[in-house]
Deep mutational scan, measured.
Amino acid sequence: SEIVVAMYDFQATEAHDLRLERGQEYIILEKNDLHWWRARDKYGSEGYIPSNYVTGKK
């Protein structure tokens, strides 16, 4: 599975969105859409994140 790191904070506005915290790692579950990826955080929460807010883990 692909691990990404959040470059920016993202506040979830929709129920299906996942909040991003800058510097935290997330697991990508689905990339069915170019701009919104389904991800899981370290607490096990899942939701959609803006793909341009994250970068591949170095």
Rank of each mutant, 00 (worst) to 15 (best):
S1Q: 14
S1A: 13
S1V: 15
S1R: 14
S1E: 14
E2N: 10
E2L: 13
E2P: 08
I3L: 09
V4T: 04
V4A: 06
V5E: 05
V5F: 09
A6R: 01
A6H: 01
M7T: 07
M7H: 05
M7R: 09
M7A: 05
Y8V: 08
Y8K: 11
Y8N: 06
D9I: 04
D9Y: 05
F10S: 04
Q11L: 13
Q11Y: 14
A12K: 09
A12T: 09
A12F: 04
A12D: 06
A12V: 08
A12G: 15
T13V: 14
T13L: 12
T13R: 13
T13G: 08
E14N: 15
A15C: 14
A15G: 10
A15P: 15
A15V: 12
A15F: 10
A15N: 10
H16K: 13
H16I: 08
H16V: 08
H16W: 14
H16L: 08
D17Q: 15
D17Y: 15
L18Q: 02
R19E: 09
R19A: 13
R19C: 14
L20R: 00
L20Q: 01
L20N: 02
E21I: 14
E21C: 11
E21K: 09
E21T: 10
R22D: 03
R22F: 08
R22C: 11
R22W: 07
R22K: 14
G23F: 07
G23I: 02
G23L: 05
Q24A: 10
Q24L: 08
Q24S: 10
E25G: 04
E25F: 12
E25P: 07
E25T: 11
E25D: 07
I27C: 09
I27H: 08
I28K: 00
I28R: 01
L29Q: 02
L29W: 04
L29H: 00
E30R: 05
E30H: 07
K31P: 02
K31V: 05
K31C: 10
K31Q: 07
N32T: 14
N32P: 14
N32G: 12
D33M: 09
D33W: 07
L34G: 12
L34M: 12
L34T: 13
L34V: 13
H35P: 04
H35G: 11
H35D: 09
H35N: 11
W36Q: 06
W36N: 06
W36G: 05
W36C: 10
W37M: 04
W37P: 00
W37V: 01
W37D: 00
R38P: 00
R38C: 12
R38I: 10
R38Q: 05
A39Y: 03
A39Q: 01
A39M: 02
R40M: 10
R40D: 01
D41L: 03
D41W: 04
D41M: 02
D41A: 02
D41R: 01
D41I: 03
K42T: 07
K42Y: 06
Y43I: 05
Y43G: 07
G44K: 03
G44L: 04
G44T: 02
G44I: 03
S45H: 15
S45W: 08
S45A: 14
E46Y: 05
E46F: 04
E46P: 01
E46H: 04
E46S: 05
E46M: 06
E46K: 03
E46R: 02
G47A: 02
G47I: 03
G47L: 02
G47Q: 01
Y48D: 03
Y48A: 04
I49P: 01
I49N: 01
P50E: 03
P50D: 05
P50S: 04
S51G: 06
S51H: 07
S51L: 04
N52F: 10
N52L: 09
N52Q: 13
Y53P: 01
Y53E: 01
Y53S: 07
V54E: 02
V54P: 02
V54C: 04
T55F: 08
T55S: 11
T55P: 02
T55N: 08
G56P: 15
G56K: 13
G56A: 15
K57F: 11
K57C: 12
K57W: 09
K58S: 14
K58N: 14
K58D: 14
K58L: 14
